[in-house]
Simulated scan of single mutants.
Amino acid sequence: MIDTLNIILTEAERSALGLSVEVSLLCAFVSLPFAVVAGWLLARKDFKLKAVVEAFLHVPMVMPPVTTGYILLLVFGANGLLGPFFEAQFGIKIAFSFAAAVLASIIVSFPLAVRAVKQAVEMVDKRLEDAGAILGASRFRVFLSITVPLAFPGILSGFLLSFTRSLGEFGATITFAGNIFGETRTIPLALFSAMQTPGKEGEAFRLMLISIVISFVAMLTSELINRRYQKSVSL
């Protein structure tokens, strides 16, 4: 299969594909634990300024991605709020790097994962959790043995939404991470570059098809697993 891809795709396309998958998977795996905790807290806990916290978590979902990227640049850029600190203390330059591409994807996709988990937890019958607590299980054990399994379809949906949103991320990435070949040029950025270059219409078309296929496969997998899970629960 790898040999076939080497024949069909150019080096630039293979690089963009590999980077996109790597960035999207890292984004989804890093985001998921925090999304599960945040989703559970928003679904099960009432606290002061909850509406403000929830609105803050969801702002990146409606804010222009370029704005998100610019904010990240102001915070983690070479002359930003925290950028000089990370460079001086750890020798890490975050902006315009692979890490910046991952961070940008995490920020813009996190609200989708949180929203999916929150809705899934809200659908879990709280009486089952209360019954587990009455039988002596700790809150953490109730969470792991009752809440998480019952909310699994939503958690999986959050993971795949984070993955696919990261796969299509453009605005925040190009602003904060740049369009660097082999490091930050994911499929959307490679597609943009190909569209701007005369004679690369074929490359742009192939990149478009690749992004559609990967997104479709991810969402189809989520739907099939969700249906299978619901069927097993009903039995």
Rank of each mutant, 00 (worst) to 15 (best):
V114C: 07
A78G: 08
S166C: 14
M1F: 15
F47Q: 05
N79V: 02
A28W: 02
F76N: 06
M63K: 02
R127Q: 09
S232I: 01
S232R: 07
S109I: 00
S20I: 06
L74A: 14
L150V: 06
A172S: 02
P33L: 05
L160Q: 00
R115M: 11
T10R: 03
V233L: 07
I106T: 10
D46P: 00
P33H: 14
K118D: 12
V36H: 01
L57G: 11
A16E: 01
A78Y: 04
L224D: 06
I106Q: 06
F110V: 04
G83V: 00
A78M: 09
Q89F: 13
I7K: 08
F192T: 10
A151F: 07
V114L: 09
A120H: 02
D130C: 03
L161Y: 08
V62A: 15
M195S: 07
F176W: 12
L5G: 13
S24K: 04
E203Q: 15
S138V: 14
G91E: 11
R139K: 15
L17F: 06
Q196E: 14
E11R: 04
G83F: 03
P111V: 01
S109Y: 09
L57D: 11
T197G: 07
Y229S: 09
A137D: 09
L82F: 15
G132R: 04
V124E: 08
P188C: 12
Q119E: 15
A104M: 11
I106F: 12
R139A: 10
F205A: 13
V23Q: 00
P153H: 01
Q89L: 06
F110N: 04
I180K: 03
T67L: 13
M195D: 09
V30F: 14
A95N: 13
L49P: 10
L5T: 13
V36I: 15
W40A: 01
V102N: 11
L42C: 04
G18I: 07
G202D: 13
G136L: 07
I174T: 08
I210N: 04
L42W: 05
A100C: 09
L224I: 04
L189Y: 03
K50V: 12
E122G: 13
F152V: 10
V75A: 12
T197H: 08
L191A: 05
L167W: 03
L235S: 03
